[in-house]
Amino acid sequence: MYPSRFGYEAPKTIDEAIAILDKYAGEAKVLSGGQSLIPVIKLRFAAPEMLVDINGIPGLDYNRVDPDGSIHIGALCRHEDLENNELMEKHAPTIAAAAPLVSDPIVRTRGTFVGSVCHADPQGDWAATMTAMGGHIVAQGPNGTREIAMNDFVIGPFQNTLAYNEIAIEAVIPAPKGVRVGSYLKLERRVGDFATASVAVSLEMNGETVIGAGIALASVGGRTIDATAAAQSLVGNKITPELIAEVAAAVAATAEPRTDHRGSSDYKRQIVKTFVTRILTGLATTSQKAA
């Protein structure tokens, strides 16, 4: 790896990190897991003047569920921490389902959940998951913290709305109204490949009745696609095969895939439809059993 020359700082507190970012006025980059940033630097697609390594800042590697039912994931929580994680399986099944599908095991030991959301790759698993679950990012800057909803956070390919002197310190998913169920499916040609299509579904249930529905798509558009509007016909109803077919078609229609060497746009829509159908059919069966 022969990147362009860059500086390196490893601050011990968030305030120090913010001060460095502030000083470099847009020419510094935060390094957390580095699983996207390092390859980009290696290929010389990016040449930041300064890397601000936040791995030495204590207290950011948590994932927890608060008494109010909200889920909090710290900036240094690795993908791997969310795999085989009982809290996630119970409170955030979409995250539990997506965690083992994020890239490959080597990347998962190092890459971070929050870093992946910030990277805003249209193929990113966590941005889609956060969108489906209605989450938000907590950003800290020189003037304190602010909350940014997912739809306001990721605004385009590799574009988020953090200011140059802000750090995303936490991802938050609010407490569900009922019981949260969900899943995640992704088609990739090989582990670690950019996906052909990915679908995140998160529902809130009261018995067999859907009381809240979120669906988001990755890899089938220039940014993460929020298909939640297309899922709203589920709300107030039991999940029936007819409803599944209707929602699957509506969700597939929100996809904006491009034809490329991973498949035609029609094929990618077909995959979205199939995955929505498979996830909802699975959730219908589980909710029937539970009820």
Binding site: L43, D104, R189, R190, V191, G192, D193, F194
Partner: peptide
């Protein structure tokens, strides 16, 4: 031209 586009199977597949 790189190993994101040129796929080598891993032990997983």
């Amino acid at each position: 031209a790189n190993y994101m586009d040129y796929l080598l199977p891993t032990a997983w597949e």
